[in-house]
Amino acid sequence: MNPSEIKTALADAVREAIPALSCFGYVPDSVPEPCFYAGEVEIDFDQTFGRGMDELLITCRLLVSRADDRAGQAALDSYLSGSGPDSVKAALVAARGAPGQPALGGLCDDLHLQRVQGYRLYQVGDRQYYGAELIVRVIGSG
């Protein structure tokens, strides 16, 4: 699996499901609000014999405006909900494809949004945003 292709496909899947969300498969220099991007990658190679499977843990970030504390956190909560039209989780579940089919259009075998963490203020440049990290587990051929 190519981490760049996987990160781009994650961003594309979220953008397709939630067009109002700016999405990037890389860490952007500046953050348009609201924003989802795939950031750091951890790779565990050789999870099965003969290069059969690798595992990636991709830390994605979701950042929203801090202009109004209540509205900003309400927007973040909407994106972090388990279902609904603004749910990033629902967008990622849809990117898994049908049962038995590869995920992200064939780039990997499966993916799973494992958890949300780091619900807090994030500093990017001289601006602060409400945000959270989403940890996505991706498995596929080595």
Rank of each mutant, 00 (worst) to 15 (best):
Y119N: 13
E42F: 08
C23F: 02
G39I: 05
P3F: 01
L21R: 08
L107N: 01
I58Y: 02
G50P: 03
A75G: 04
R66G: 08
A91W: 02
T48W: 04
G82R: 07
G50S: 14
S141L: 15
Q47N: 13
T48I: 11
D12K: 10
L111D: 07
G131W: 00
E16R: 09
N2P: 08
L111T: 07
P19L: 11
L111W: 01
D110I: 10
L76M: 04
E133S: 14
G84S: 03
L107K: 02
R70H: 10
Y130S: 07
S4L: 15
I135Q: 07
L80M: 09
D110G: 11
Y129C: 01
A38G: 01
G72F: 00
K7H: 10
G50F: 09
C108K: 05
G82V: 08
F36S: 08
L104R: 03
R127K: 15
Q114E: 15
L21W: 07
G82C: 06
E40L: 11
R115V: 15
P34G: 02
C108H: 06
P85K: 13
S78N: 09
D29W: 06
L113E: 10
G105W: 04
L104H: 02
L111V: 11
P34Y: 01
A90F: 06
A91V: 01
I6R: 06
S141P: 10
F36H: 03
L63R: 00
E133K: 12
F45G: 14
G118M: 13
G72N: 01
L57Q: 14
S22N: 13
Y122S: 04
G82A: 13
P34C: 03
G97L: 08
F36T: 04
Y79K: 01
Y122D: 08
Y119M: 14
A74K: 04
V64R: 00
R115D: 14
D68A: 11
R120K: 14
A98P: 07
G105S: 09
D68C: 05
N2I: 09
L113D: 06
V136H: 02
G25D: 03
M53G: 04
V14C: 01
T59Y: 12
Y129H: 05
C60F: 01
E16T: 15
G52A: 11
D68P: 00
A74E: 12
P85G: 14
A91Q: 06
L21G: 07
R15A: 15
C23G: 09
P19M: 10
G125E: 07
R115C: 12
H112P: 13
G52N: 06
A90Q: 11
S65A: 09
T8S: 15
C60Y: 00
G125C: 05
Y79W: 05
I18T: 04
L80W: 01
I6F: 07
S65E: 02
D46E: 14
D109T: 14
V136L: 05
P85W: 10
V124W: 03
E42W: 05
Y122H: 10
R66C: 09
V27G: 10
Q123F: 10
L62G: 02
E42G: 07
M1P: 02
R70L: 13
D12P: 03
S4T: 13
A38Y: 00
L121W: 05
